[in-house]
Design a protein around this nucleic acid. Structure first.
Lengths: 101, 101
DNA sequence: ATAAAGAACTTTACAAAATAAAGTACTTCA
DNA sequence: TGAAGTACTTTATTTTGTAAAGTTCTTTAT
């Protein structure tokens, strides 16, 4: 029985579907440009833009804008605090899974 | 790299915060009455009522209304299809965790 | 006997989030 | 040079989640 499963342990910023995908990808890749992230998460430009902004506002990623030749290049990088938050999220989720199986 | 992490593998009906808590509890308890579920998930009456209805509409739980003495008693039970869906959710989540750590 | 309080919900209203559509500012190709 | 494409952002719409209010009864106190 997941007696001690605290629903509040699941960070809402991370729990969002697309944001979870972004964090999962960045957790191993470290950083990625906008286009790659869009492909990996199979999301639309608009949605990705919005969700990356939210992660940025939470301090979980940093966003750097440069140019690759003539084209704009946005690079999203997982921050230290983002990594910590993601690890905590995974820990809470793992506990839920263990307790449920 | 969670190359194969398919964000769509995460069943949206289950992914919702409170619904996830309900499913997690029911996955081990099998069934519970409204009041118990409310206490275990620390939710409000209104929210619980709404989310249970959604799980019911998805066919993941069955809801039976009886009386305990004079008081109404609503019993929520995990269905076979609900268990399957939850297992699939856990499997997708486990894969995400494994790939991310 | 009856009013006040409480239990067990449901319904409706409101707020937040996700998605989709449209817009901007270029660049490249024909 | 103009049509299509890239790399985004902003705004609008839809969906979802939460909170507030309402309903129907029961229990307790007077």
């Amino acid at each position: 029985m997941p007696e001690d499963f605290n629903i509040e342990a699941l960070d809402d910023v991370i729990h969002g579907r697309l944001r979870l995908g972004i964090m999962a990808y960045l957790s191993t890749a470290g950083s990625a440009d906008f286009t790659t992230l869009k492909a990996k998460t199979q999301s639309s430009d608009g949605n990705l833009s919005v969700q990356v902004r939210k992660l940025e506002e939470a301090g979980y990623v940093t966003v750097e804008k440069t140019f690759a030749g003539k084209k704009p290049l946005t690079t999203i990088t997982l921050s230290e605090s983002g990594r910590k938050a993601f690890v905590a999220y995974l820990e809470a989720m793992r506990k839920l899974i263990d307790d449920s199986t």
